[in-house]
Design a protein around this nucleic acid. Structure first.
Ligand SMILES: [Mn+2]
Ligand SMILES: [Mn+2]
Ligand SMILES: [Zn+2]
Ligand SMILES: [Zn+2]
Lengths: 141, 141
DNA sequence: AATAAAATTTATAATCATTATAATATTATT
DNA sequence: AATAATATTATAATGATTATAAATTTTATT
């Protein structure tokens, strides 16, 4: 148990982030909940453990994680920002029926684009939308 | 000149959208300004020609265009929604320095993903971020 | 250990894009 | 011309995010 917290602390320290209780808990949450949670989801879960937690802290901390590459921001839909602790390059599929966001591995890095030869590419995002198998099955008449 | 408006009208009629003056002008705007404008940009340009124009009309109309595939929505950044009249599948590169959003052609359709075999994919989006050649040149010391 | 400084968190208010609502204007139908 | 349907407008409400300043906690200094 303390082992877990020590590991999370170490991760933060390596990024020159002081491992406060709030930061550790937020990092722990996004590591254990890989369903691409929103700020609200994170806040509403952690407030049970940390009754004094402020939503501003969640925003600040996620911004900090984003800038140090401990988390990535997903903006698939313009009305909800989601966070992802898996920072390696991978695709996202959002089901328009149930809202679930699925990860998928795709050969994003080899998506060669001649016309961007002289562009410095720092970040690649692939978002798909449609209907997931569960919802397809459910809506089958 | 009227030829142009007639063409735009026809496009709307084909989609079963009544070609009101506002709708024609908004369609014309996004067709002639392919720099992925925001609602605000569109509104602030058209208000000069249509002094009574309401921002709600711009929102409603773009939602209508989106649902009839006359426009696509870009949500590269979580704080700005942009619109694109090029509805064919193409990639977008946003320069983090100057904010310009560049189009690029990529083989998005052939981005095969085995794990999505049983998913019904309706929409594919590819967003890159980084620095554009102009800004790279400018910042060269 | 006491004090001061720095960093972090919290509570609260402000901002701003978007959505909702209802009134007005326009267009189509009888 | 009267009526119904549709579109536009003005305005208010919503809600996520950001900004600000006070309070708390941590760290450094004496
Ligand atoms: Mn993911
Ligand atoms: Mn485009
Ligand atoms: Zn689903
Ligand atoms: Zn640039």
């Amino acid at each position: 148990m303390n082992q877990k917290i020590d590991n999370l602390s170490k991760i933060l320290i390596e990024k020159n982030i002081k491992p406060s209780y709030q930061r550790i808990k937020i990092l722990q949450y996004i590591n254990e909940n890989i369903n691409h949670p929103t700020v609200d989801t994170i806040f509403n879960s952690l407030i049970k453990e940390i009754p004094t937690l402020s939503k501003a802290t969640v925003y600040n901390t996620l911004e900090l994680f984003k800038s140090t590459n401990l988390a990535k921001v997903l903006t698939i839909e313009d009305n909800e920002t989601r966070y992802d602790s898996k920072v390696h390059s991978h695709g996202h599929f959002k089901c328009e029926s149930c809202g679930t966001i699925y990860d998928f591995e795709a050969d994003i890095d080899n998506l060669a684009v001649d016309s961007l030869k002289y562009f410095k590419i720092k970040d690649k995002n692939v978002y798909f939308k449609g209907i997931c198998p569960k919802c397809l099955e459910k809506n089958k008449n």
